[in-house]
Deep mutational scan, measured.
Amino acid sequence: MQRVNMIMAESPGLITICLLGYLLSAECTVFLDHENANKILNRPKRYNSGKLEEFVQGNLERECMEEKCSFEEAREVFENTERTTEFWKQYVDGDQCESNPCLNGGSCKDDINSYECWCPFGFEGKNCELDVTCNIKNGRCEQFCKNSADNKVVCSCTEGYRLAENQKSCEPAVPFPCGRVSVSQTSKLTRAETVFPDVDYVNSTEAETILDNITQSTQSFNDFTRVVGGEDAKPGQFPWQVVLNGKVDAFCGGSIVNEKWIVTAAHCVETGVKITVVAGEHNIEETEHTEQKRNVIRIIPHHNYNAAINKYNHDIALLELDEPLVLNSYVTPICIADKEYTNIFLKFGSGYVSGWGRVFHKGRSALVLQYLRVPLVDRATCLRSTKFTIYNNMFCAGFHEGGRDSCQGDSGGPHVTEVEGTSFLTGIISWGEECAMKGKYGIYTKVSRYVNWIKEKTKLT
């Protein structure tokens, strides 16, 4: 034993070699072989497995989906700052455009905790909710729209109204504003409101030439003092309507412009014939205590009207009353817009006519005020429907199939267009061939041609 100890002390290297040989010859039971080890760690190889990531292109799944990435790591994937920024906006807080917040056709661009709407022409605001041009839906104005110097929408209202708090709607500024039905039992019968379409306001006024200088022999019209197929109006439903009495009662109609003036057809009036105007009328054979009678003290036909040349060209006249009318729910003026808007309103496509005229061709006159909704007829169809001249200051309205029309005794009465609950004068009943005849239409004086003249002559002093 002493000898062994001496050998170990003198030859430590020998001992180490012996131990190493023993270990190498022993069977290893701690580690699995290569094949079995792979069965336990069965993990798919990654895209760049075996390579240094710093030297390969980034992978979106590896960089940002398996674990949260930084902007720089995302930049490695896209290799483009702009594309990385677009991805980053949604990656950080989701897609803010998912709810489609942009209105009126706006395009949404996502941002971090926010979004941006790219608005089409005519709109602005956070969600493109603000109209900035009158060309689109009248700028959301209830009545009139004008573009300011910086191309912003400025709404306005006709006389007797003021802008509401929203700067879009119009509200009454006087007790009985024009064009409004205020009798409670008839307010439910107000005709369907007309909503502004998209309009090209630059070209809204037709490029028409008034044929002022045409000389033409007097034409022989049949029954051209021209509501057939209409309905009984309720008291106060058309408070701007008046009836004219002269040699015979209810020979023509008219509309209240203001307390002192009536507008009617020029062919209705004769110099030297006494005319009485009755406002607030409903049943011409009954006294309903809503009527107001006034005498006409002055007749002003349009300066281009000449019955000797043509009885229905420039067929418009103004009547001055001896005493002002007292405005109330049964006696209310009709609204008159400017030339541009009167023309736009007419193009809405349908209007209402009213009167006490004959209820059928050569038949009896109506006792109760009649009204009828009539569609506008395109000019080409209008011209083809008659052998008589249709001037540019006239328009056609009615039904091709016949059966409904204005008729004798309705002449001078109103053709009105309702705009968001307020009625505007767009025409004056003038003439036609018979009444409600198939293929024939009622012919009306186009008020847009005469609004400046009306307003100039009827100013209240």
Rank of each mutant, 00 (worst) to 15 (best):
V4I: 12
E10R: 04
S11E: 05
G13Q: 11
L14Y: 06
T16A: 12
S25H: 04
E27V: 04
C28Y: 02
T29D: 12
T29L: 14
D33L: 09
D33S: 12
I40V: 13
L41S: 12
R43T: 13
R43E: 07
K45Y: 04
R46K: 11
E54G: 10
V56E: 15
V56P: 15
L60C: 04
E61H: 09
E67W: 04
C69E: 04
E72P: 14
T81Y: 08
R83V: 11
F87H: 15
K89Q: 12
Q90V: 11
Q90N: 15
V92I: 10
D93C: 03
N100H: 11
S107N: 08
C108T: 00
C108E: 00
K109P: 00
K109Y: 04
D110M: 09
I112G: 15
W118M: 01
D131G: 10
D131Y: 08
T133F: 06
I136V: 09
I136H: 10
I136P: 14
E142K: 06
S148M: 08
K152V: 11
K152G: 12
K152H: 08
V153T: 14
C155P: 00
Y161D: 01
R162Y: 10
V174H: 06
C178P: 02
S184K: 10
K188R: 07
L189T: 07
L189S: 13
A192G: 11
E193I: 15
V199Y: 13
D200L: 11
N203M: 09
S204Q: 05
T209I: 09
I210S: 14
Q216K: 05
S217Y: 11
Q219P: 13
F221N: 10
F224M: 13
E231D: 09
D232T: 11
A233V: 07
W240N: 00
V242Q: 00
V243F: 10
N245C: 04
V248W: 08
I256K: 00
N258A: 04
K260C: 03
A266L: 02
A266P: 01
T271S: 09
H282S: 10
E285H: 13
T287L: 14
E288P: 06
T290A: 05
K293H: 09
I297L: 11
R298P: 00
P301C: 07
N304R: 13
H314R: 02
L318W: 00
L321F: 00
D322G: 06
L325Q: 00
T332N: 04
C335W: 00
E340N: 09
Y341E: 05
T342V: 03
I344H: 15
K347S: 15
G349Q: 05
G351F: 01
W356H: 07
G357M: 10
F360E: 13
H361A: 06
K362E: 12
S365M: 10
S365V: 11
L367K: 14
V374C: 03
V374D: 01
V377S: 03
D378V: 03
A380N: 09
L383P: 03
S385K: 13
Y391L: 11
E401R: 13
G403Y: 14
D405K: 14
Q408S: 12
G409L: 07
D410P: 15
H415S: 01
V419R: 05
G421I: 02
G421W: 02
L425W: 00
G432D: 09
E433C: 07
E434C: 11
C435F: 03
K438Y: 06
Y441G: 02
S448M: 03
W453L: 00
W453M: 01
T458R: 02
